[in-house]
Design a protein around this nucleic acid. Structure first.
Lengths: 153, 153
DNA sequence: GCCGTTTAGTTGAGCCTTCAATCATCGCGG
DNA sequence: CCGCGATGATTGAAGGCTCAACTAAACGGC
């Protein structure tokens, strides 16, 4: 069966390319800043954030992967690295012998607290400062729609 | 001098997290599809696209890096890989002895042509199909604003 | 024409991510 | 209570990205 490709029209094309350029530039910039100022990539920062917000500053590996939008494998490697940095500690899960719990150490929390202001400032400068209040609203709507669309299917 | 951190308010927080989730999920999905169907990551696909659109299907390395939103180093590595795949060829630049010109081969063009329909379909399914016409307009506005803000500074 | 600076591009080391394979444990149907 | 598919997590190899260092050629002033 032959399926005709639904090509992008010029408007969609323009939208897609602008989105690619913008999101890549934004992420690259924030990643570079975080690496420079806090010595960790954005993905690792997010792991620490999620842990810091969890009750007891700890989460099961799977839940942490889900929360941080990471694959299990990636999280395993990442936590291994964070552990050698002394920012996270692994513990056995009391209710499931297969499970592991990642715990944010005091050192990790302190590192996060030190990195947060600079990073937030970066997000503000590179993202929010450029957009009007209306655009920020729109971006939230679009992002939430998309997030549901993508993680739902 | 002490600078107060301009923390994100709850709305901004929500926007930022949704954006992170959505853009990461979108890119991960498209990257995985492209890797599976065409044997290359999205960054490489984009290099081929830019080359295919250039006059003579060729571009100076620097211009290609700029067009593809890539660092010079990344592009060097990428083109090296694309060259061993037989999709791109390097030539001396006639007007600047320091320069190199990346040329899309027929093989590369054919590979791109084979990959494009599937990829475009993915972009449509994962992005445009989820958004209303109004949202698509908004996304273009936001992305273009952002792209200028980020690449201008 | 010469020297210092800028620009073009490459390279290698180190780190991060992905993929597939693996291992252990859990929980359910019979 | 046993077997087996599903689940939780890790591992290693392969490949991509970043950073800093480096080479070579062009440019600009004098």
């Amino acid at each position: 069966m032959v399926v005709m490709t639904r090509w992008l029209n010029p408007d969609e094309q323009r939208t897609w390319r602008a989105f690619l350029t913008a999101s890549r530039a934004l992420m690259d910039t924030l990643d570079r800043e975080l690496q420079r100022d806090a010595g960790m990539p954005h993905a690792y920062y997010e792991i620490l954030v999620r842990l810091s917000e969890a009750p007891g500053r700890q989460l099961r590996m799977s839940d942490l992967a889900e929360a941080a939008g990471s694959s299990r494998s990636r999280l395993s490697h990442a936590v291994a690295r964070l552990e050698t940095a002394g920012w996270v500690r692994r513990e056995e899960c009391p209710t499931d012998r297969r499970g592991q719990v990642a715990v944010l150490t005091d050192d990790g929390f302190a590192t996060l607290a030190a990195a947060a202001p600079g990073h937030v400032e970066g997000v503000r400068r590179h993202l929010f400062d450029a957009l009007s209040p209306a655009q920020i609203d729109q971006l939230r709507g679009i992002s939430e729609t998309l997030a549901e669309h993508l993680t739902g299917s």
